[in-house]
Amino acid sequence: MSTDTTVKANATPTYSEAFQSGVREEMTRNKGIFILGTDLQERGGHFAQVKGIAQEFGFDRVKDSPISEAAMVAAGMGSAMYGCHPIIDLNFIDFSLGAMDEIINQAAKIRFMFNKPVPLVIRATSGIALGGAHHCNSLESFFAHTAGLSLAVPSTPMDVKGLIKTALRNEDPVIFLMHKKLSGIRGEIKGDDYFVPFGKAATIKPGKDAVIISYGYSVVTANKAAQALEAEGISVEVIDLRTLYPLDTDAINAAVQKFGRVVVVDEAPLFGSITAEIAATATEANFGSLKGPIVRVGAARAPLSANPAMSEAAIPSVDSISAAVKKVMKY
């Protein structure tokens, strides 16, 4: 078994480096893994997510692509059916829209129709930061809604590594979303034999009074809100879903039953978002345990603006999450 040596023993790696680490280990093990996307070989991707991998594994296994998203996903899909395990790096998830047919009509359905697995990872940077309307789409519910796709949304370096390794041992198409605002965060990672299963949530912070269920960067905001509420005497548990499909309904049900006061948070516009799915499913299964309606916190139904204050105002904040918790505490 190879152990990754590029991450120095005493320095905790960044979120992007954690991705590199997991990919390196799996590439060493499986010759069929290759990466294809724009500006990967020299630049290492826009978020340094594959920095140095081309130099280590060769340009045959880290390929620079033209800006041809439909062809990129098609290339990944065909080669996956043929026996490879490609990572297609779409840069920003917004650019998946030019390959939506390949993802939703093709990759997601091949196994069902042709009994042929499509071991394909589509990696992209997601979430809301500055960048305006075309670079801040929250498309999680599109993908989670599509039978045949799995969806990873890690919020820590540890989970990035553990989840990408699992994805690369899995035989299904995985959408792997890495949040813009998390690229540089640092944290512990584990070694070659550590895998995070899909469909298994993590408790980020234990609590006694209420629970916030979230994923991605919203976990960070939710955690800040929970810390602030602690000072006001409200003890809030924070759960990070880590994958949206499969969804850890056991963890959700257990939390709803335990607390009865539930807030669900993400950055997508509320209408039709994954938070609606979580709230509906949790309510159906646990109506009797709820002390009142589940409260959802999400984004406004509007494209994101270039103006930073407008953009911030459109998405959840520590204040809006705290307010939601206080609302469920009144039940």
């Binding site: 305006g132 309307a133 075309h134 270039a306 103006n307 407008m310």
Partner: peptide, 10 residues
């Protein structure tokens, strides 16, 4: 030109 909604790219 775009009321501050677009920014440099829009």
């Amino acid at each position: 030109v775009s009321g501050g909604r677009g920014g440099s790219m829009h």
